[in-house]
Amino acid sequence: MTDSAVESEQASDGTSETETLRVGVVGGGFIGTAVGGEFVEHEDASVVALVDIDESVLEEAGAELGVDDASRYTDYEAMLDTETLDAVLIGTPHTLHYDQILAAFDQDLHVLCDKPLTTDLDDARDLVERDAERDEVLMVGYQRHFYEGFIRARDLWAQEDREPRWITAEVCQYWVDRFEGTWRQNPDLSGGGYLYDTGSHLLDCILWSTRLTPEAVSASMDFIDDEERVDGRANVTVRFTNGATASISLSGETPCMREDVRMWDEEGAVTLDSQDWEPNRYVEIDDESGEYRPKLARTDRQTKVEAFVESIQTGEEPAATALDGLRVTAVTEAAYESAKGDGSFVDIDPDDVRLE
Rank of each mutant, 00 (worst) to 15 (best):
S247G: 15
S200I: 10
E129M: 13
D81A: 12
S46C: 00
R22G: 04
L355Y: 10
K340C: 12
V67Q: 02
R354A: 07
R327C: 03
V51F: 01
D265V: 12
A269H: 12
G36R: 05
A61W: 01
A104W: 03
K340R: 15
S200A: 13
L326A: 01
E228F: 05
G24I: 02
D300F: 00
T198G: 15
W264P: 04
E259H: 06
R211P: 06
T271M: 07
E333V: 13
V67I: 13
P187E: 03
D287M: 10
E284H: 10
G193Q: 06
I90Q: 00
W166Q: 14
G232N: 04
G343W: 08
C172D: 05
Y174C: 09
S220G: 12
R134S: 10
G66P: 08
T237K: 14
E59W: 00
T314R: 13
H201C: 13
N242D: 05
A158I: 03
D86V: 05
G14F: 11
H97F: 00
R239T: 15
V238S: 01
Q173K: 01
S344V: 09
C172L: 00
F150N: 09
A169D: 08
L296Q: 13
Q173I: 00
T119E: 02
V57S: 14
I53K: 08
E337C: 01
V140F: 04
T299W: 04
K295H: 14
G62M: 01
W277R: 13
D126L: 12
G24F: 00
D108S: 11
T15A: 04
R178Q: 14
R298D: 14
G181T: 10
S220A: 11
D114T: 05
D13G: 07
V305R: 09
E17A: 09
E267I: 01
S71L: 06
G192V: 06
L195A: 13
R301D: 14
V40E: 09
T119C: 13
L272W: 05
A307V: 08
W166M: 15
Y147I: 14
K304R: 10
I151A: 14
F146I: 05
E133N: 12
Q107F: 03
Q10S: 10
P187F: 04
Q107Y: 07
H145F: 06
T213C: 12
A322N: 08
P214A: 02
S190T: 02
V176L: 10
Q313C: 13
G149R: 04
V176C: 10
R162M: 12
N235I: 10
D114F: 12
G232S: 07
D222N: 10
V270W: 05
A169I: 09
E59P: 02
G27H: 02
K295M: 09
Y292W: 15
P350F: 08
L80M: 00
Y194Q: 03
A320Q: 08
T332V: 13
L203S: 11
T303A: 06
R134C: 09
E83R: 04
I285N: 03
T92Y: 05
